[in-house]
Amino acid sequence: MLLTVAPILAVELKPLRVNVVAPGVIDTPWWDFLPDNQRQAVFAEYAGKTPVGRIGRAEDVAEAIAFLVSNSFMTGQVLTCDGGLRFAA
């Protein structure tokens, strides 16, 4: 939903800037519900589907956010941070 709302909010809330970061599979404690061996298997499967050959780290998402914060000319954008997973066949 935020993917379609970001440009609308950017116009409605101007001059405030509104941007969205859309992360892919990121190695965070959210995955702790899986036993370690299953989690590693899921991560390996997703990593194999990405052009970058790995899953994301929290730092990857933080860097995407920092970019959007630092660029005062960007608004209404959705920055996908998924290692190219959306291109997986």
Rank of each mutant, 00 (worst) to 15 (best):
S72K: 15
R86A: 12
C81I: 03
Q40I: 10
T75A: 10
P35S: 05
V61A: 02
V25L: 14
N19Y: 05
A88P: 06
A47I: 08
R39F: 10
P23T: 12
L79W: 08
A6D: 06
R86M: 04
T80W: 00
L85S: 07
V20F: 04
L79F: 10
D82V: 07
L68C: 03
F33K: 08
V78F: 02
K14I: 03
T50Q: 09
K49S: 07
G53S: 03
F87D: 11
Q77K: 07
G24F: 05
R57I: 01
T4A: 14
V18Y: 00
T50H: 04
G24E: 05
R39C: 08
F67M: 13
V25K: 06
V21C: 05
R57G: 00
V78S: 10
Y46V: 14
G48M: 10
V69K: 04
C81T: 15
L34K: 12
P29S: 10
W30R: 13
L34G: 05
Q77L: 10
Q77M: 11
F67V: 01
D60A: 06
V5A: 15
T50P: 01
Q77R: 13
D27A: 14
P51G: 05
P29L: 02
T75V: 04
F33R: 02
P29H: 09
L3A: 13
N37H: 13
N71M: 05
T75K: 06
G48C: 06
P35L: 06
L2R: 02
L16T: 10
G53Y: 04
N71I: 01
D32P: 01
W30Q: 12
F87T: 14
A47P: 09
R39Q: 14
A88R: 07
R57D: 08
G83T: 06
I65R: 00
Y46I: 11
N37V: 11
N37K: 13
D82W: 06
L68H: 04
C81H: 02
G84Y: 00
E12P: 04
W31G: 09
A89N: 08
W30N: 09
E45I: 03
Q38G: 05
L79N: 07
A64S: 13
Q38M: 12
E12R: 15
A22N: 15
